[in-house]
C-alpha cells in the first residue's frame, strides 16, 4: 500500500482502517455478547456479572422445547438440502451447457424465491397447505414433508446461483476433450464436470442447509401447535425474556454452525466459495 504523503492522507487512511475494523466488529459483536452472557452465573441480566458458570449448558438437556426444535430443524434442513441439490445441479447443467429458448426466464424463475419476500412465501404456502388438508384430509400443515418441501424452495436459488457460477468457471475445452475421446454425455458429467465443480456443490449444500436451518418466516406458518423448530423456539423465548439459558441455546447453535464452517473450510477454502 502507498504510504500517506501528508497529514490529510494519513488521516484518510486512518478513517479507512477504522471503518474496516468497525464493520467487522459490528457484525461479530452480537455473537460475542450472546457467548458472554451464556457464561454469567447470575440469572438476571446485570453488568458486570457476579461471576461465571457453565451451569446453563448443563441445564440445556432438560430444555425439551429446544431439543425437539433442534431435531425438527436438523431433519428438515438435511432433507431440504439433499432434495435442493438433486434438482438444482441438473438444472444448473442445462442452464450453462445447453442452448434453448426461455433460458433467461427459467433462470429468473429458479432465482425468484430469493426475491419474493419470505413472509409472502410463508403466507401463500400456508393457504395452499390448509386447502390441501381440507381437500384430501392429509395433514399438510405441521408435517415434516410439507415443511421440507417448503424449505427446498428456498435452497434452490442458492444452489443454482453457486453451482452455475462454478460451471461458468470450468473451461468447456476439458469436457469437449473428454467427449471427443469417446466419453458418453453422462460419463462426461460424472467423471469430468462434477469433480471439477465440487467446491461449488459443497458451498451450495452449506448455504442451502443454513438457509433452511435458520429459516423463521416460512416455518412460522407451517408448524402445527405443539411442534417447533429451533429458530421459532428461540424467538418465542426471547419475546418473553433474555437470560443465560437462551444465551446458552444460542451459543450451541453458534458453535454447531462455526464447526460446520471450519470443517467446510478444510475441504474448500471459504474465501473461494462465498
Amino acid at each position: 500500500m502507498v504510504r500517506g504523503r501528508n497529514a490529510g492522507e494519513r488521516a484518510g487512511r486512518a478513517v479507512y482502517n477504522l471503518a474496516v475494523a468497525g464493520g467487522f466488529v459490528f457484525m461479530v459483536l452480537p455473537i460475542l455478547l450472546v457467548l458472554w452472557l451464556s457464561l454469567f452465573s447470575n440469572e438476571i441480566l446485570t453488568f458486570p456479572p457476579d461471576g461465571y458458570s457453565l451451569r446453563w449448558y448443563q441445564g440445556l438437556l432438560g430444555q425439551q422445547q429446544f431439543i425437539a426444535g433442534f431435531l425438527t430443524s436438523l431433519q428438515v434442513a438435511v432433507l431440504a438440502t439433499v432434495l435442493g441439490l438433486l434438482v438444482s445441479v441438473p438444472a444448473s447443467l442445462a442452464l450453462t451447457r445447453l442452448e434453448f429458448r426461455g433460458r433467461q426466464a427459467i433462470l429468473q424463475l429458479l432465482l425468484a424465491p430469493l426475491v419474493v419476500p419470505a413472509i409472502v412465501i410463508g403466507t401463500s404456502l400456508y393457504v395452499l397447505f390448509v386447502e390441501i388438508e381440507i381437500a384430501t384430509d392429509l395433514p399438510a400443515v405441521g408435517s415434516v414433508v410439507g415443511l421440507s418441501l417448503a424449505h427446498v424452495l428456498i435452497t434452490i436459488p442458492w444452489c443454482v446461483r453457486l453451482v452455475t457460477a462454478n460451471l461458468i468457471g470450468v473451461n468447456p475445452a476439458i469436457e469437449e476433450a473428454a467427449a471427443s475421446l469417446g466419453a458418453r454425455p453422462a460419463t462426461v458429467v460424472f467423471k469430468v464436470t462434477l469433480p471439477l465443480i465440487w467446491p461449488g456443490i459443497v458451498a451450495a449444500g452449506l448455504f442451502g442447509f443454513v438457509t433452511s436451518f435458520g429459516n423463521l418466516e416460512i416455518s412460522l406458518f407451517l408448524i402445527a401447535p405443539g411442534q417447533t423448530t429451533l429458530p421459532i423456539a428461540i424467538l418465542q423465548y426471547l419475546a418473553w425474556k433474555i437470560d443465560p439459558t437462551i444465551a446458552a441455546v444460542s451459543a450451541m447453535q453458534i458453535l454447531v454452525i462455526a464447526a460446520g464452517l471450519l470443517i467446510t473450510d478444510r475441504f474448500v477454502s471459504l474465501s473461494r466459495v462465498v
Binding site: P30, V34, L37, L216, I242, I254
Partner: peptide
C-alpha cells in the same frame, strides 16, 4: 446464525 440469535445479542 440466524436473526433471532443476533437480536438476542443486541438485547444484551
Amino acid at each position: 446464525v440466524g436473526n433471532a440469535v443476533r437480536a438476542a445479542g443486541w438485547m444484551v
